[in-house]
Design a protein around this nucleic acid. Structure first.
Length: 115
DNA sequence: ACCGTGACTGGCA
DNA sequence: ATGCCAGCCACGG
């Protein structure tokens, strides 16, 4: 793990985690939105990569609240079990059907508004 | 050191 | 409407 990432304080990974932790319970956002909020140099794919590593960082990162632009749970296969991501979302009152967040538009949380 | 690939996305065919 | 392509940066083989 990145014990000493280059420029730890400004590492994009840290900024991504910090932002994802701010996502309110019961709300969701997208990889692209986070990437945009963290700087144009960061791509949505890098956010996905960061999420892939996020399971071992502290404090915990609510990676299940991050979905793709269509509200689809594209990252579900990276959780402990294929159904865990959906279960975590439903536990917060978010309804998921066929791997899609219902009312995604209404539940979308814009990261830029809370920086 | 090079190349393929990734929890993505917007644009163009 | 669907599908493919390039671009984003880091990492593993």
């Amino acid at each position: 793990m990145p014990e000493r990432p280059s420029t730890a304080e400004s590492s994009f990974v840290d900024r991504v985690y910090m932002l994802v932790r701010k996502i309110p319970r019961g709300r969701v956002t997208t990889y692209g939105a986070i990437a945009e909020a963290c700087g144009s140099r960061i791509s949505a794919k890098m956010v996905g990569w960061a999420m892939n590593m996020s399971h071992r960082v502290l404090p915990p990162v609510p990676a299940h609240r991050v979905v793709n632009r269509k509200g689809i749970l594209t990252g579900k296969h990276h959780f402990a079990t294929p159904t865990l991501m959906q279960e975590l979302l439903e536990r917060e009152g978010i309804r998921v059907e066929d791997d899609r967040v219902i009312d995604f538009d209404k539940l979308f949380w814009d990261p830029r508004k809370s920086i």
